[in-house]
Design a protein around this nucleic acid. Sequence first.
DNA 1: CCTACCGATCGGTAGG
DNA 2: CCTACCGATCGGTAGG
Lengths: 205, 205
Amino acid sequence: MAQIETSNGMPDGKASGMRKRILQEATLLFTRSGYNAISMREIAAACGITKAGLYYHFKDKEALIIAVMTDYLNDIGHLISECRAASPNAHGRLTAFIRAIFAQPAEKRAIIRLASQEMSNLSPQARASFNQLYQDRFIGALGEILTEGMQGGELRPANSQQLVWILLGMMYPFFYPGQERTSQLEEGVELIISTFFDGIARHVK
Amino acid sequence: MAQIETSNGMPDGKASGMRKRILQEATLLFTRSGYNAISMREIAAACGITKAGLYYHFKDKEALIIAVMTDYLNDIGHLISECRAASPNAHGRLTAFIRAIFAQPAEKRAIIRLASQEMSNLSPQARASFNQLYQDRFIGALGEILTEGMQGGELRPANSQQLVWILLGMMYPFFYPGQERTSQLEEGVELIISTFFDGIARHVK
DNA sequence: CCTACCGATCGGTAGG
DNA sequence: CCTACCGATCGGTAGG
């Protein structure tokens, strides 16, 4: 493939173009096969550079996956803020969040799974700092929406943190590179929403 | 540590004792850190034998993880049969299943997560055959319980296969080696059950 | 960003 | 010929 760089000769710029390219390719490869299954050589080859070139942009392999996950967590943080502003109640806010996540490219939302999956393979320091970001930007922000919904009487009282995990868990199977699951994605999204809020039992109206 | 073998001198027996020991240790290590993060040397050391000894019992690393996952899938198959027999309706059968899974040692139920997670790291042949077993013993068996519940009017109509994935997804976060999640496990189990069947919205009775 | 490499460790197998 | 391994090393590859 030909090179895609639209500009070069920027010696001190942070957004070098290649850095973004590396993050894109690493996201694809890591979410497809896992952190340990992907070598720095493979990522370099996907980017059209050598392995040593990778180490110019990222200190080591861990710094690369941390960048992938941190960038996405920041996106998620903004997304949750928008969903909160878009509706006054928990149902509206959370359905907006769920639909927005599934409107993303599959390899983007797969980073949520990647983060849970590879947390144990991070160094203790990286794990600690990333875990805090994960809690602040993601789990905590969703938990607040649930807590407010319970206080307003919209939702029945429960452990908000556990409910966040349960909601994310329901979405989890759709974060794998599935086969025909893609064509049934819209159906799955609505099933997640209706199950989470109303359950699957046939209620007497 | 001392050897734990209770008997020896069984020249033609298949259950050699060491084979079970290997499967136990591999289960712990693989579920804790993932397939690629654990070396055959580490598994051998945990068993008190050399790496070459491992290869006497298992042809290669893939055969070992396949054995871990297949043995557990067979247990699950029996478990689902028992849950089916224990109750006449979907609610009773599935709550029995969920409670039984969470009554297992954490590293046992973590194999469910391991299977989803490491499927992509298996060779195409192994993946194909394992996927079929997974579908037969697990996903399909649970899907049947849901389908029957819908036909009997107990559950509202929906895509059974997707609902199985959603139910397993809800349990998924509790399949990680969590910290304080263990003390809140019973609360989490009941929250999964009540959410799956009734949802989290405050319904008018 | 590349060429040219390193210490170490990977999964797997030899003869005994 | 068999079992249940061991000590040493194979060809390749990991991150750096």
